[in-house]
Amino acid sequence: MLTDPLVIAGHTFHSRLFLGTGKFSSSAVMKEAIAASATEMVTVALRRVDLDNPEDDIMSALDRDRCLFLPNTSGARTAEEAIRLAHLARAASGSSWLKLEVTPDPRTLLPDPIETLKATEILVRDGFIVLPYMNADPILALRLQDAGAAAVMPLGAPIGTNQGILTVFQIEIIINQARVPVVVDAGIGAPSHAALAMELGADAVLVNTAISVAGDPVAMARAFAQAVEAGRTAFTAGMGCRSKQAHASSPVKGTLAADLGFLA
């Protein structure tokens, strides 16, 4: 168990791995994978579930005592659609947590920064705990934070692509600047990608496709849990720096020095 729990909007998470629930071969496999991952936060697409039906496949597979249920607005193309979905979800589930996704382009499913900011402002005002999915744009992260987002969820690569953290430079800036937790979402295709995000100092990662379409989703869920923990531990332990040149492990002083002969 991690000794440095993550806190979002006053809620404590002991696992820094969040899971998506799409693309699993069955609810049973999903349930097992969730258990193996030890996650405490799962996101569910509102369009995939019937919140009014207690028999709903996905919802009945979720242990809401162990896992926080994070409905998402996947499929919304505008702020208006996302806001409408959010209110319906809250009415049905009783939870104010929301992963805000506004993706007008059905091919790339890249998030719309303008609509996302607009929806965040309104939903925060309406009392939601908003975790917006966003492109890895540092200024947008700050604007969303200022608008009251409880965390920001920049993407590593377009959703479902398993490409890894292609936005590493931007993600680092976001991590450096943000006051709210940073959850790297989308594009994480392998445990090593998750570990990298955590080594960079991300507060958590959200993984879906890489687990749900793996040969053995349950084993893969476990692998991700281990990678996230390893990456977090490495980050808190303090990473050494990377260099293009070889450096002696006992460095010789003076080779990269400036002349300070002017000092009194």
Binding site: K253, G254, L256, A257, A258, D259, L260
Partner: peptide, 12 residues
């Protein structure tokens, strides 16, 4: 203190 020249270099 003994790294001052190296610090100056990096700072510069």
């Amino acid at each position: 203190e003994s790294f001052l020249p190296e610090m100056a270099r990096r700072s510069a």
